[in-house]
Structure formats: C-alpha cells, structure tokens
Design a protein around this nucleic acid. Structure first.
Lengths: 347, 347
DNA sequence: AGACTCCGTGTTTACGTAAACATGGCGAAG
DNA sequence: CTTCGCCATGTTTACGTAAACACGGAGTCT
C-alpha cells in the first residue's frame, strides 16, 4: 500500500485495462514476477504471491491474450468448421466438442460454412488460420477430399466424419456397425429384406451406412432392394416414403437418420399402413423426439460425447507433440429398440 | 527475383511462419508498406502493391492476429455464451448469430456453459474476457439477473432472451405475441379455454409466453385453468400430458415448445384421444419435425435469422461507437397452422 | 571454512503488427 | 522560378507478455 495507484479507474468506459506493469508497480515487484504468479510458476515466495494476487484483484487485472499468444505462439483455441447446426448430429457434435475443449482449457472458434463449395471451405480455413487457432476440427466435410484442396500444412487438423484415406486423423461413430445392427435386427424379426433410404450421396456417413446395409443383406442371402436417396430432411424422407408405399412387399425400412424416418412414417401412415404391424421403420441418431413419437422410433444412438472427447484429445496431442497419427478411430453406437419395429405381417 | 529466399520451407512442419518483414525483404520494400497493402490502404502505388502481393503469395504469408490485436486492441471476435446446443432454439440462434457475425467480418468464440449456476456463468465470462473478444452475446441466461453478478464493465454485451430490465441491450422474439396468436387461434376455433404446459419457471421466454397466454384468456373472458410446468423436454411434456388426460374437459393444449407438445401428443394418443378431433395441440418453435408428425403440429415459428442479425448489428454498433442502447428489440413470430388443431368436439 | 547449488527475484529482449512521425520528390499555384 | 503541399514510402516506437539470462543470498557438501 504505497498509494501508487495512478488510475484506479472505476467502472468508467475503457480507461485502458491494467497491464502486468501496473500490477507489478502496485505490488512492488517486477512484471516478470507478476507473470510468474499468473502462470502459477513454483518459484515465487508465498508472501510475494499473495501481494501480487491482491494487487491483481484490486486493479481488476486480466491477462492480455493477444500479447501472450504473440510471445508463446499458442492461442489455446481450436477452430471448428461445420456446415451449420441444422442437423442434429452436427449440433450435438459441435456442442460436445466445445465442452470437451473447454475441459482441456481450450476455447472454440466456430465457423459455419454456408455451402459445401470448395471456395467456401477454403475461405473458412483462411479465416481460421488468419484468425488465431492452434488446430482445426472439421465436421462432416466431404468436399475436403478434393485433391485440389490444399490445406495449410502448418495447422493440425482432425476430422469428424470424413473419408478414411485422408492424411488427417479422423474420429467418427462406427457407421457400418450401426447399419449392421439395424439390418440384422430387422432380418432377425423375420423380414425377408430391408429397404434403405440413404442420406445424400456425397456424405461419407451416408455412404458407409448404405454399404454396410448392403453387405449385411448379402451376408444373409437376402434380396437387395433398390436404394432411395434423401438429404437428411424429413421432407426428403417423406418423398422417399411415398415412393415406397407404391412398391409391393415393403415390410421394413431403414432410414439413414431419424428425421427421414419420420418422413417415411408420415407417408406410410397417410397411405393407411400401420406401424409396426404393416411396416417396421428404423432411423439413425436417436434425436430426442424419437422416443416420443407415436409409435416411438427404433433407432441407433451415437455417443457424441466420446467422439468429441477423442477428437479433442487427438487435437491436443497433435498441437503439443507435433505428431499426427493419420489413423481413424471408430466409436461404437448402440441399437435402441422401440415400438416402430416388429415381426412382419403374416401372409 | 533476387533469390533472397532464405527458408523456402516446403510442407515441412513449423519452420516458422513468414512475417511482414520476410515479405518486405522479398518485395524490396519496408514492412510498413506491406502492412499498408494488407490493410488495403489507398496510398500504395499499384506496381508496389502487386510486388508485395506476389511476395505474400510466394511465401504463403498470413497476418498474425495476435500481433495485430495487440497493437489495435481489437480482435474482430465475438464471444458467445450459451447453455448448450441441446435445445432447438439455442442451436438455431447460435447458428444464425455465427453466420451473421461472419458476414460482418467477425469470428465467434463459443462457450457452452454446462450448468446455470452463477459460478459457471462467471467462469464463462472470465474465460471470454481473458480470451480475446470485443463483445459478448449471451443466450438465454436467466441467471444473469442476479444482482450479485458483476459483469466486466468494459466489454459490450448483448442478450438474446433475458429480462428486459437489464442494463444491456436485448433482442428476442416477441414471445408474448406468439403466445397470444396461439391462444386466440384456439379460442377462435371455438374452444372454451386453453390449457398451458409452460417451460421452466426460471426461463424468461417461458414466463412471457405463460403471462401472455394468461392475459389473452382473461381478455376473452375465458376460464384460466391451472398451468403445468415442464423443462422443455419431450419427456416433461409427456408427464404433463398424462396429468391432462386425467382432467375432464381438456380440449385444447398449448405447450411452450414443440418438444413438450410432442410429449403431450403421445400421452393423449396413449390415452385413446384423437388429435385434433378430441384434443387440439399447439407447440412453439416450429422444429423441422413438426411438419411431419402425424398429425402435423400447429406451432409458432420464430425468425432466428432476423434476431441474430439484430444482435450482431447491435453488438457491432456498441463495439465501434461505444454507445450502449439498453433497449429491447422484439421480432415478430408467425403462427403456423397445421393438422393438430381443429374445432372442439361437439357435445 | 570454502566452493557449489539452488531459489527467489530482477533485467533485457523478442514476438509481429500498426500508429505516428519523417523524408524526398514532384506538380500546382503564385 | 520559387514555395507549398501532397503522395508514396521509410523509420521509429509502443503494444503486453514470457523466455533467457543475470544475480545475490542462503543452505549443503566435503
């Protein structure tokens, strides 16, 4: 308390935030000692530390991230590129990644790319690398596969849902396992085969689900009906459902996500089919609504929290050690059986 | 082309990113001139500019945000505090705010607060102000009302959904109007009164919807039935719905969001009630699924894009001019009439 | 008892950028 | 023909922090 407070500055507007030097002056130490206290270094005497802490409190000191990042070269920030929070899976992933990153002491800088054009993705990358991030998480970006797309080589990247062959590590739900569980479930119930409403053709997740559905049918020597395509929306599921109502012998439908399943359900119900007595329907994702539909929807639940946890830890490994294990991690999903599936109608 | 490239550094790992000085050396100008080119200042001769641009391209130069922020005091980044992307409204708002911010040249730094405790919110604020943001957008934070909560006074704040009385500007959907539209719609159909399943008591949005429902019934001289409370989830709506099935004379239910409405629907259907013949049900939000439920759900659509646009422009006004108009902006929602509402059963 | 070590602290420096100020040349105005 | 002023560019400086190095004093080992 030597009364050296020059600009105490109450709640006024921006009379310049106090710096380490201000804190140092008030505590009667060098700014380096303040730095040591802020960073929890061991070699500061307890009494000194307390004096510094109290000065920090009095002045309302907050470290300046820009200055710190400038000198350390680290931002403790992750960039996150996604294609909108519209889809349930994306929203859950973004949410989980954000929370996992926070737990690891990182902040998340989000970019929502409006379209899947190469240019848009490129711009997003530019914005992030110009911006200050230590690494970039890309969610569901099929376009990145384009060989022409040159990612900045000096920033670690982890992908959530993408192609396995890329040179970046990837973490995803085991889509193939999920689709297999669904298909086997329906076959085991006695259905002769299973129809599939797939997601968009350029989605890796959709493709893997479809391939696994196909393979599982083959293994079981079941006929493989022609696949229909949607775009993840309930509207597209509804369209596909209307097509299916006109095909004879459809007793089991596997939609690649819950929203399309909902659309299929509506089309079936409008056509007078009962679910599950006439047609069994399965979705994928387990959105919150699925348990409360009438009938409730059998589906596959992905463990987004585990996926996010792995993404973040891979990211941080890369940032801190520089290693880039270009491997793929799959997280097992879980089949949730509800009311929308049953044995096929007899006769 | 004087061959002065010292460390061309192909795709190797982190051989130090080029700085303005490197670009300047290659282009044969001072670093200040490079700075002028980067910032699109007018007073640079075209030929010089081209030489600098080409050097930047060759070296793969990217401005260092930390250094720039350190000297300008601006980060061109908005902090965004939300309570998870689980709810549809939050996810849509975050998505829209992110996109609006991007259009304005700002990046969004997201913090997902896990719990609504004062401590958690405080930590989020700390993390953001320690982190580098020019302003903070808070989504649906009832807790901020606590008088004890002292926000850092030197950072502009805009709230999305909160109490009107606060000293920060706020933007929100006109919840009262939405609830009034719903209630009037049901009364106009001939229902004697409307039951209400409200959101959590500590949510301002829920409270405003409930108050408006109440007021509209009063105005119409309709009886005001006892209100039920949920927590926005379909599960809580289902519980409320089961209670309602036991009450006599329930012909119209207004749930404070679509997911609770879905829960109510399921409870009604399970109890053998037909929708809308026996009971009309209305939700709020217009989630994508609502149009494809069977029956499809009458609901209220919020214009999240407009809300986000206003939030961001208010934010940027505050940042750039320093003014803080502590006013509230309401954006009108829209009633979407679908199959789940009709005239009450006769007799 | 003397040399050696470690601990708490201070001093100097670098990080990359943009603002502020400085400079020289060239055209316009008198 | 001189002077003024503007334009393109260069030079110097400040931003706030942490790393690197420096230094004195107290304890330890022989």
């Amino acid at each position: 308390m030597d009364g050296a407070t020059q600009k105490p500055a109450a709640g006024r507007r921006s009379p310049k935030r106090p710096s380490m030097a201000d804190v140092a002056a008030m505590a009667g130490v060098s700014s380096q000692t303040v730095s040591r206290v802020v960073n929890n270094r061991s070699n500061v005497e307890e009494e000194t530390r307390q004096r510094v802490l109290s000065a920090m409190r009095v002045l309302g000191y907050r470290p300046n991230t820009a200055a710190r990042a400038l000198v350390t070269g680290q931002f403790r920030t992750l960039g996150l590129i996604s294609f909108g929070l519209g889809s349930f899976g994306n929203a859950r992933t973004v949410d989980a990644v954000t929370k996992a990153a926070q737990r690891a002491g990182y902040t998340v800088n989000m970019i929502a790319v409006e379209s899947q054009t190469e240019r848009a993705v490129h711009e997003a990358f530019d914005q992030l690398t110009v911006q200050a991030v230590d690494g970039i998480v890309v969610i569901e970006a099929q376009i990145l596969d384009t060989p022409a797309l040159r990612l900045p080589p000096d920033v670690p990247v982890v992908m959530a849902d993408g192609d396995v062959s890329l040179r970046h590590p990837m973490v995803d739900t085991d889509q193939a396992l999920g689709a297999r569980l669904v298909t086997r479930h329906l076959l085991d119930l006695g259905h002769e085969t299973v129809w599939h409403v797939a997601g968009p053709e350029d989605s890796y997740a959709a493709r893997r689900r479809a391939e696994s559905w196909h393979a599982t049918l083959k293994e079981a020597d079941a006929a493989v009906p022609q696949m229909l395509f949607g775009d993840w929306t309930a509207a597209s599921g509804y369209e596909a459902g209307r097509v299916l109502t006109r095909r004879p012998g459809v007793t089991a439908v596997f939609a690649a996500n819950d929203q399309m399943a909902l659309g299929v359900m509506r089309a079936m119900i409008q056509a007078g089919r009962r679910i599950p007595e006439d047609v069994s329907i399965v979705g994928f994702d387990d959105i919150e609504e699925s348990a409360y539909l009438s009938p409730s929807l059998t589906t596959v639940r992905q463990d987004f929290d585990v996926v996010a946890e792995r993404i973040v830890s891979l990211m941080i490994d890369q940032i801190e050690t520089g290693t880039a294990p270009a491997a793929t991690t799959f997280v097992a999903p879980q089949l949730i059986v509800r009311e929308s599936t049953s044995a096929p109608p007899t006769g």
